[in-house]
């Protein structure tokens, strides 16, 4: 299954995919589009990606997590396209026999995603402007 979707993320589906009676600790992470007060507040973010590389990098990251925590199961989905403030852009679930591995595996995946995943965000702001995150304004009406 692809790690990418343009539909709203379902944490329930991820939790079901990692759960099992031998795994007593489950950790879930949701990254959501953050708004800020004021005219530069964010109404939503347009996410784009190098899709093929996202798939291969996430394959590697999940395999690395499995190597580090062999008894853990992790699942991750990243949403692309326009995502309104307050909605989730990434969901990660990690389940393991004990909570420490579940927390560690979940944390590992999100930290590697931040460092390695070829995904870009264009913030759409309340004042009508659009700004690439970590870059200069691209449009001001």
């Amino acid at each position: 299954m692809s790690y990418l979707t343009r539909q709203p993320l379902s944490l329930d589906a991820l939790l079901k995919s990692v759960g099992g009676p031998e795994r007593g600790g489950t950790c879930a992470f949701l990254g959501t589009v953050r708004d800020e007060k004021g005219p530069s507040g964010v109404t939503g973010i347009e996410y784009s990606a190098y899709d093929a590389m996202v798939e291969s990098e996430l394959d590697k990251i999940v395999a690395e997590a499995r190597d580090r925590w062999p008894d853990a199961r992790v699942a991750v989905r990243h949403r692309l396209g326009f995502i309104a403030a307050g909605e989730a852009s990434i969901a990660i679930a990690a389940a393991a026999p004990h909570r420490a591995e579940a927390f560690d595996a979940c944390r590992y995946v999100i930290e590697q995603v931040k460092k390695r995943l070829p995904v870009w965000k264009k913030e759409l702001r309340r004042d009508g402007s659009a700004v690439w995150v970590d870059h200069q304004p691209v449009h001001t009406p």
């Binding site: 190098y50 996202v54 990434i90 995603v113 070829p118 995904v119 870009w120 690439w132 970590d134 870059h135």
Partner: peptide, 10 residues
Amino acid sequence: VALLPPLAGG
């Protein structure tokens, strides 16, 4: 070859 702007995933 892909030229990648600063990454912003998650």
